[in-house]
């Protein structure tokens, strides 16, 4: 019958699913490529000398959408027609963390969701930044006394910029991304 299963079966199904995801992540080995090693040496030399690579890194930040709750609606408003995010270089709200630079955490994070957040953060390639969008990701928000949430995403991840508001208007996020760009290029001290 649909829907009727014991608690052991539920736990077994959950363990199988977690195992499936972990196995798919484990067997990935990237053999070092000679050309790749040479390119990374070259790019490290360039970035130390504050040149072309740094200019490219500052001016084309690709965000990864991690909209969980109400702030996700304002995130979609940030990418839509009135306040256009693409005109400043923040293209293509990606679903995959492999191609993204900035992780925009929008919404409250519960205890069930913490392993997923950590796993996605570790899958992003360096250099990577995190913006805490909204009050629930900053300090827990109106659900401060609840039994099931984390009070602020900075108990789990290192955060660069905090945006206040419930929900913040999309113009606020625009200013936050500009501040992040200034922080990367070294104009503002940490």
């Amino acid at each position: 019958m649909e829907g009727e299963y014991t608690e052991e079966e539920f736990q077994i199904a959950k363990k199988e699913m977690d195992q499936l995801v972990q196995d798919s992540l484990k067997g990935r080995e990237i053999k070092p490529n000679v050309m790749f090693a040479k390119m990374s040496d070259i790019s490290r030399a360039i970035s130390v000398s504050k040149g072309l690579v740094k200019w490219a890194r500052v001016n084309s930040l690709w965000p990864m959408q991690f909209g969980l709750a109400c702030c996700a609606i304002e995130l979609m408003g940030f990418g839509s027609a009135r306040i256009d995010a693409e005109r400043k270089g923040y293209l293509l709200f990606r679903g995959t963390p492999r191609q993204a630079d900035v992780m925009l955490v929008a919404g409250w994070v519960t205890k069930s969701m913490v392993p997923e957040v950590k796993r996605l953060y570790e899958q992003m390639t360096e250099p990577r930044y995190v913006i805490a969008f909204g009050e629930c990701a900053t300090c827990g928000g109106p659900w401060f006394e609840s039994y099931n949430i984390i009070r602020g995403i900075d108990q789990v991840l290192p955060v660069d910029v905090y945006v206040a508001g419930c929900p913040p208007k999309p113009e606020n996020l625009f200013e936050a991304m500009i501040k992040l760009q200034e922080k990367i290029s070294g104009k503002i001290e940490d």
């Binding site: 009727e4 299963y5 014991t6 608690e7 079966e9 539920f10 736990q11 069930s112 039994y147």
Partner: peptide, 18 residues
């Protein structure tokens, strides 16, 4: 009369009847 299963909360939280 039926097999029960958890829906909303994880068991490792130790929450029974919030």
């Amino acid at each position: 009369g039926r097999k029960s299963g958890r829906l909303l909360l994880e068991k490792w939280d130790g929450l029974e009847g919030p």
